[in-house]
Design a protein around this nucleic acid. Structure first.
Lengths: 128, 128
DNA sequence: CTGTATCCACACTGATACTG
DNA sequence: CAGTATCAGTGTGGATACAG
């Protein structure tokens, strides 16, 4: 046990952008979950993502589109609108993400407690 | 199908820092995987994480310690050293992370392809 | 050995206002 | 309706040097 860690352990596997537990930008996870139930229009996404400004939401959507995780379709009709939907690749991400969500929900409380303890200890260090 | 998305869908579940697929900072995932095999010293971690400056690695380690995912132990001996190891909470994260890693490995190529297509299309738009 | 200090660059986010 | 433009704040990461 405790063999040395190879220096190139993650060189190929993990370019800096491929930390798999740190996928996408701040809102990517929520965007994907919002599209879980089927195609959504931009204005529909803005409801659950009301804290996200349109500029930021647009960028997040474009980034996911760029990576082939969602498909953007423009309907140039009398009342023009745009629909976003998960691609098969994007849909394949739902399961690992749900697992990560479950983990986060189960451990969120203890992480908050740990933070509080850590911060309190730091305060005491400063004081004393 | 296609019911409206509730506006408060993620208010409680996902404060901005609790996007579960975007855990920790840039290097958190790799740090955790480096600790999978047991306790490691700071200098040992620096080998596989050679691209990370000590300042950034320290910050990442402190952040994980703050959240109770790793434990930091100082040995104040003749040759002082520090060991980091996963807590039970930290270890519980290995499985969801491994699943996310598997997904990323399986879909990394197609995501790169999608990016290339997307960028090429954008270039053509500019040109023509 | 295990970090800190300093300076810098830039990406990300956000608020507000505006447009085809 | 579906975005863009602009400006600004902040954090996050990186290079380099230094310290207990």
């Amino acid at each position: 046990m405790r063999e040395p860690l190879p220096a190139d352990m993650f060189d190929e596997l993990c370019p800096s952008s491929l930390n798999p537990i740190r996928f996408g930008d701040k809102w990517a996870g929520l965007v994907i979950r919002c599209l879980e139930g089927g195609p959504r229009r931009f204005s529909e996404l803005r409801v659950p993502l009301s804290r996200v400004t349109p500029k930021v939401l647009t960028r997040s959507l474009r980034s996911l589109e760029r990576d082939g995780l969602i498909k953007r379709t423009v309907y140039a009709e009398a009342t023009p609108h745009v629909e976003y939907e998960l691609t098969p690749t994007g849909r394949s991400m739902l399961e690992p993400m749900a697992i990560a969500c479950t983990w986060a929900e189960q451990h969120w409380d203890e992480m908050l407690d740990a933070r509080e303890s850590y911060d309190n200890a730091a305060s005491l260090d400063q004081a004393g």
